[in-house]
Simulated assay, not measured.
Amino acid sequence: MKFVAFERAKQGTGASRRLRNTGKTPGIVYGGEGQPQLIELDHNALWHALKKEAFHSTILEMELGGKAGKVLLRDVQYHPYKQQVTHIDFQRVDAKTKLHMKVPFHYVKAEESQAVKFENCVVNHVMSELDISCLPADLPEFIEVDLSGMKKGMSLHLNEITLPKGVTAVTRGKPNPVIVSMVLTGGEEPADATAPAADAAAPAADAKAAPAGKGAPAAKGDAKGGDKAAPAAKAPAAKAPAKK
């Protein structure tokens, strides 16, 4: 990709603010054999270029002062809430010096895998980019990862993919991290997963029916109690008054 930059004479907070008000973005280019140089770019053209993935991960051709040079995007600063690029940094590229870059992964053919097509799985992108080291001539725009052979529960590690020629992965912590895995969708559960709930519902139903069942013995007891109380219910016979 090519873009045009212009030399910037003034520096400082006030000068940069005035530059942004005129539709320009301040920046700097450094590295290589030359000295750091202040530059400015057209903001609108830069804004649209930054939306392209290649602008972030490939070697760019910058025209400055009538001369073309190769650079890499190193840093971009954005306004907290406005759609505005406030500053940008580029690094000159030396053909004989290795670069340290972050390159995005492109995962392909996931829909053709057994995990996605037949086993109701989704792709879990553990890593979206990879730190690499290589010469400028070997720098890839992205690293493609084929997922067509993935099955349920499988994970793909870094050493299981083929990196482009001349590219070395730079890992920190785990030497062989997981980059992608296949997991079941949230709505999918085993068929017997609802069995415990059904079993739990049965005792609850019995518990509700228990009071009605206890009513019968109570009635039976009342009947027996009624039989025992029958003699007591009889009133004693009245004695006739004695005749004088």
Rank of each mutant, 00 (worst) to 15 (best):
200 A>D: 08
203 P>T: 01
210 A>R: 09
242 A>I: 11
218 A>R: 07
240 A>N: 02
185 T>Q: 11
192 D>L: 00
223 A>T: 13
238 A>N: 12
231 P>V: 01
207 A>T: 06
214 K>G: 11
209 A>P: 05
206 D>I: 07
233 A>L: 13
210 A>D: 09
183 V>A: 07
187 G>Y: 11
192 D>Y: 04
206 D>S: 09
220 K>N: 13
208 K>G: 06
230 A>E: 10
219 A>L: 14
236 P>V: 00
202 A>W: 14
226 G>D: 13
222 D>R: 14
226 G>C: 05
231 P>M: 00
184 L>P: 01
241 P>Q: 09
240 A>E: 11
205 A>G: 05
208 K>S: 07
206 D>A: 13
236 P>L: 05
190 P>E: 00
221 G>R: 09
242 A>G: 02
184 L>K: 04
228 K>Y: 12
235 A>G: 07
222 D>M: 08
219 A>Q: 12
227 D>N: 14
227 D>S: 14
230 A>P: 07
219 A>T: 07
217 P>I: 05
197 A>N: 03
201 A>F: 12
189 E>H: 10
228 K>H: 07
221 G>S: 13
198 A>E: 04
228 K>Q: 07
213 G>R: 15
192 D>P: 01
226 G>K: 11
203 P>D: 03
213 G>F: 15
234 K>L: 10
204 A>E: 03
198 A>W: 11
217 P>F: 04
233 A>R: 15
239 K>W: 04
213 G>A: 14
234 K>F: 06
197 A>K: 10
223 A>K: 12
194 T>K: 04
197 A>W: 06
229 A>F: 04
199 D>Q: 15
190 P>W: 01
206 D>H: 09
202 A>L: 15
223 A>W: 14
213 G>P: 11
197 A>G: 02
242 A>N: 07
201 A>R: 08
239 K>T: 06
193 A>Y: 03
240 A>P: 13
198 A>T: 03
222 D>F: 12
213 G>S: 13
226 G>Y: 09
212 A>L: 09
237 A>M: 07
218 A>H: 06
242 A>Y: 13
190 P>D: 01
236 P>R: 05
206 D>L: 08
201 A>P: 08
238 A>V: 06
191 A>G: 00
196 P>T: 00
208 K>T: 06
195 A>M: 11
202 A>H: 10
241 P>T: 08
194 T>L: 05
193 A>D: 02
198 A>G: 01
